Simulated assay, not measured.
Amino acid sequence: MFEFVTDEEERGQVGIGTLIVFIAMVLVAAIAAGVLINTAGFLQSKSQETGQQSTKQVSNRLQEVVTTGTVDQSNSTITAVNVTVTQAPGAGEIDLENATITWIGPDGTFIINHENASTQVDDEFTTSVVKNAEGSPTVLNDPDDRFSINFDLSAGSEDPSLLTEGDEVTIKINTMAGATTTIRFTVPESLGQTQGVEL
């Protein structure tokens, strides 16, 4: 016996097929939208993190106030260098204990860490408080804070050596945030009879 399909049944089958295709498209679109939203959120958080790190690298710098040298009058050499620093404008909290200093002098290049650092490289520097509002021994966290970074020089070849008249030195101070402060000075041609000299 032949079975006849009416127009209404054909329309019903076509409608069900269309509905299934529509639901599948909605599901695919929902999954794609979820992936895009997650990716956009991830990229936004990474860009904010990168922007903050870049800002710190630019702004969390030190600013030199004055650099002085201690003079040994017996042989006209500088036996110690003291660099007084403060926060650069717009800088955040800077812990000098975590700073790494590169000393480039007439006798070579030396990597210098704070005396309290967990790892020591070529030599160490010390810090002393000139002015500190909150009493932290190594942390600059106020624009009025002043700390002195102290380098003791020696006659040996393992450490930065004594400086003589006319010597040129470059000091690069790298903070934990990755910002670099470069300080250059030249020893005066005549140290005279003074115990200290501004460099």
Score class of each variant (00 low, 15 high):
Glu134Leu: 10
Gln87Asn: 11
Val139Ala: 02
Ala33Leu: 14
Arg146Trp: 04
Glu9Val: 03
Val139Pro: 00
Phe125Glu: 04
Glu10His: 07
Ser59His: 11
Thr39Gly: 07
Pro89Leu: 11
Asp159Ile: 06
Ile94Pro: 01
Ala133Gly: 08
Ser157Glu: 13
Asp72Pro: 06
Asn75Ile: 08
Lys131Leu: 11
Val71Leu: 05
Lys46Cys: 02
Met176Pro: 01
Gly41Gln: 14
Ala30Val: 15
Thr67Glu: 04
Leu163Phe: 03
Gly51Asp: 02
Ala40Met: 11
Thr67Pro: 05
Val169Asp: 05
Gln52Glu: 10
Gly41Glu: 09
Ser59Cys: 04
Val169Lys: 05
Thr119Ala: 14
Gln195Pro: 02
Thr194Ser: 14
Asp72Ile: 07
Ser128Ile: 09
Gly17Met: 06
Gly69Pro: 12
Asp145Leu: 02
Gln193His: 08
Gly69His: 03
Ser76Glu: 06
Thr127Val: 15
Phe22His: 03
Gly34Asn: 15
Ile78His: 06
Glu93Thr: 14
Phe151Val: 07
Asp123Arg: 07
Glu49Met: 08
Gly192Trp: 08
Gln120Val: 15
Thr70Pro: 04
Gly178Val: 03
Val14Trp: 12
Gln73Tyr: 04
Ile94Phe: 05
Gly105Asn: 01
Pro106Lys: 03
Thr67His: 05
Thr84Trp: 04
Val5Ser: 09
Ile149Val: 15
Thr138Glu: 00
Gly69Leu: 13
Glu10Ser: 09
Asp142Tyr: 09
Phe2Leu: 12
Gln57Pro: 00
Thr86Phe: 06
Gly90Leu: 12
Val187Gly: 01
Thr127His: 04
Ala133His: 06
Gly166Val: 02
Asn82Glu: 11
Trp103Tyr: 15
Ser157Phe: 04
Asn75Tyr: 08
Ser157His: 07
Asn38Leu: 12
Glu189Phe: 05
Thr175Phe: 00
Ile78Cys: 09
Gln52Cys: 00
Glu168Gly: 10
Gly15Met: 08
Met1Ala: 10
Val71Thr: 00
Thr6Asn: 11
Asp144Arg: 09
Thr50Ser: 13
Thr102Gln: 03
Ser54Thr: 10
Arg146Cys: 02
Phe42Arg: 13
Glu9Leu: 03
Ile78Glu: 00
Gln57Gly: 03
Ala155Asn: 12
Val121Leu: 13
Val21Met: 09
Thr109Cys: 00
Val21Lys: 13
Ala29Tyr: 13
Lys46His: 13
Phe110Asp: 00
Glu9Tyr: 05
Gln57Asn: 09
Phe185Ile: 10
Gly192Tyr: 06
Val121Trp: 07
Glu93Ser: 15
Ile101Thr: 01
Val35Gln: 10
Ser118Asn: 14
Ala88Lys: 09
Val187Ser: 00
Gly15Val: 05
Ser118Met: 04
Asn38Arg: 10
Thr77Cys: 05
Gly34Trp: 04
Ile149Gly: 00
Asp7Ala: 14
Ala32Met: 09
Glu8Asn: 15
Asn82Gly: 12
Ser59Gln: 14
